Amino acid sequence: MVARERILDTALKMFRIYGVKAVTMFDIARDCGISKKTVYEHFQDKQALVDEGLQQLLTNHGDYLKTNSQEAANAIEELLGSTKYITNMAKTLNPVMLHDLQKYHPDIWSNVEKFRSEGVLYSIKENLRRGMAEGLYRQNLHINIVARMRQLQLEAAFDPEQYPADQYEMQTVMDQVTTHYLLGIATTKGQDLVNQFLQTKNDVL
């Protein structure tokens, strides 16, 4: 891994663990095992590092959604795959990072909000259309309303006021809201497939 990639990878890891404000360029250099001067040779300042790091996270997320859609056998498998990805990402993300971005880096936060309102919502709508075409989701669904409902479910799962970490485990929250969502929109055929996935998961556990 070249120096620039290592710096960026280390910075993202530290931002996700400690938040953005608490991490200094010196901290990043020390964790990388290089001098602070070397960090500044690749990134003009911390703002540049935060900009590029967060853009990479959003790009990676968007790329995953596209790949998952192409490789999943059906809409239900696609939705469960994207939910697993989001849950795993949340496990390594300190909510302080999101708070710091919103408060101290409004330009970057606007990109995050745009991705949530456009990229994620678009992916949910496309999944609904796919499921309806495959006969797995009910034909009378109002796509815009149901997609927004799903987006609000996901946002609530990340909200510590709704699901405090000391009372709720993220995996359990996501499993519950996703199962409820799927069984609510699925046809009989789709419900059978959902139950197969759930049974397979229980057998593994």
Rank of each mutant, 00 (worst) to 15 (best):
A48E: 02
N202R: 15
Q56F: 06
F43R: 13
T24W: 06
A147H: 10
D192T: 04
L8S: 12
L54I: 07
Q70S: 12
A22M: 08
K91E: 05
D51E: 11
G135K: 03
V120T: 12
P160Q: 08
R16Y: 03
D159F: 00
M1I: 01
Y163D: 03
A156Y: 07
H180L: 03
K201I: 00
A147L: 06
G119H: 11
V2P: 10
K103N: 13
Y122R: 15
L80V: 00
M97H: 10
R30Y: 08
H105D: 09
K114E: 06
R6K: 15
E118F: 08
F158Y: 13
I124W: 08
E169A: 10
E52R: 15
L8F: 07
T172A: 13
H105N: 12
G62V: 03
D100E: 07
K66R: 14
G62T: 05
Y163T: 03
D107Y: 12
F197K: 14
D100P: 00
Y163H: 09
Q55E: 12
V177N: 04
R116F: 09
F197M: 09
E52G: 04
F115Y: 12
M89L: 11
T24D: 04
Q55D: 11
K37D: 12
Q199T: 02
S117D: 09
T187D: 07
R148E: 12
V39K: 11
K21D: 10
T178F: 02
L79R: 10
M14F: 06
E126N: 13
V112I: 09
N111G: 09
A72G: 06
A186W: 01
K46C: 00
I108M: 14
V39D: 05
E5C: 04
L128P: 00
T92K: 15
K114C: 06
L65P: 01
R16H: 05
E77T: 02
V112A: 10
A157G: 08
S69K: 12
I108G: 13
L54N: 14
K91D: 02
K91Y: 11
T187W: 03
P95T: 03
Y122V: 07
N68E: 15
H142T: 10
W109I: 01
L12E: 07
R148Y: 08
D166C: 05
N111W: 05
V120I: 14
H61D: 13
V2C: 12
Q176N: 09
N140Q: 11
D51T: 03
A29H: 06
W109M: 12
V50Q: 09
D107I: 05
K36L: 00
L152E: 14
L121R: 14
M132P: 07
D63R: 11
V39G: 04
H105T: 02
K103R: 15
G19K: 11
A75E: 09
G62E: 14
Q199F: 07
I143V: 12
F15V: 01
E169F: 03
Y64C: 00
M14A: 08
Q153Y: 14
K103P: 01
V173R: 07
E155Q: 14
A75V: 01
T172F: 09
R129V: 03
D31V: 04
S123G: 10
L183N: 05
Q162C: 13
A48F: 04
D192F: 01
G33Y: 05
A165Y: 14
K46A: 01
